[in-house]
Every structure is written in C-alpha cells, then in structure tokens.
Amino acid sequence: MKAAFALLKKDLASEVRTRYAINSLGMFIVVVVSVILFSIGDEKITDYLTGGLFWVVVFFTSMSGLSRAFVSEEERGTTLTLQLIARPESIYSGKFFFNVALIFSMNLIIALLFSFFFEMFIFKNILLFVCAFIIGNIGVAASSTIIAAIISKAGSKGTLYPVLAFPILLPLILTLIELTKQSMDGNSISESSVELAVLFCYDVVMVASAYLLFDFIWKD
C-alpha cells in the first residue's frame, strides 16, 4: 500500500511538472464540447439527450486520457525499474488511484461546462446523479487501467484502446445513462437502488478481476 501511494505521488509530481493532462486533456474537453455546441446550433435539445451527450464526452475523454498510465512508463523506459522495486498489486493500485484522480477532475470540468452551456442539463434529484457519478467514475477508472496495461504491452497503442475498452465499458455506460435519465426525472435513491447496485457490482467485479489478472500482464 505504501508503494502504491509512493507511485501515486510520483505520477502526480511528474504530472505537475509536465502538465500533460492539464493542458492537453483540458483542451480536448473544450474542443469536444464546442464541437457539440456548433453541431447543435440553435436547436433546442431535450434533457435526456444532454445526459447521453455528457457520457459520450466522458467516454471519449477517458479514452484519450487514461491510456497514458502505462504507455508513459513504456515510452520513458521505466517499466523495468518499476518491476524491480514494487509488487504488481501495488503498481496497479498506484496507477488506479492516479486514474481515479484524473477522471474525477476531468469529469468535474465536463460537468461544469455542461451545466454552463446546456440549459437542459438540470437534475431534479442531484444526489442520485452525484452517487452515480462517483461510483461510475471508479468503474471507468478500474476497467480502463487494466486495458491500458494490455495496450502498453501490445504493439499499436493509440487506435486499439477504444476498440478494447468499449465492450468492457458498455454495461457501465448504459446503466449510467439510465441513472442520469432517472435523476433528471427526479427518482429517489431507493427507487433507483437496482441500477446503483448494478454499478457497484460492476466496480467490485472489475477491480477484483483486474487485481487478479494484472500479474500476468505485468511480468513478461
């Protein structure tokens, strides 16, 4: 656990130094949101559609941002050092925590931009949306970290990532879109408990299987 936090600290420090995510992902979000705004033009879009678009932006931003976790290590040639100094589980945890931090900050920016630009992005039950947002982000981080590990060991890095990640993330995204609709309709948390339970199960299953399988990817 100590090694995991050390790795997280190292990633955060190198992030502060290079400002890769802050610069390029921030710009990516701005570009995607403005493309959506241009394509909508003067049309009035419904609240359900804004909810769906929100998760589309989240999906593509995490596709471009979260794959960096292991690819950056491969590019800088530090994989071998990491293999020597830390156990696979703590490396996965460290990268997972970093991705959780990254995706939370990215999605907060996306949510703020959406509530600023789209007047239909209104929730009758904001608490339900916040719950879904938190559990969902952890799920996205868990599965994209393990896919990022697979990608870093495979040859072609960029294009393969969304292809591999989409089928894995599909149940999560479908449930999240459903929950977003429900929180826009103003369902109470107990009314949507089944969907929240599905999200929670997904997180548990993904984190557990990723921990078990990371070992095999990491040592080669």
């Binding site: 599965s143 393990i146 896919i147 697979i150 060991k153 495979a154 591999l164 089928p167 894995i168 599909l170 149940p171 479908l174 599905v198 199960c201 997904y202 299953v205 993904m206 299987s209 990723a210 399988l213 095999f216 990817i217 080669d220």
Partner: peptide
Amino acid sequence: TLSSVYSIIAFVTVPFFIFIM
C-alpha cells in the same frame, strides 16, 4: 497472455448483459 487476459476481463461483463440488462 494478452488475449487470455482480455477474454477473461470481457467475460466478467457477460453476466451484466445476459442476466441484468
């Protein structure tokens, strides 16, 4: 190794599609 890991990870999402969705 990589395709084995991927097919196992993909398989754990199957219950969501078949039984829950």
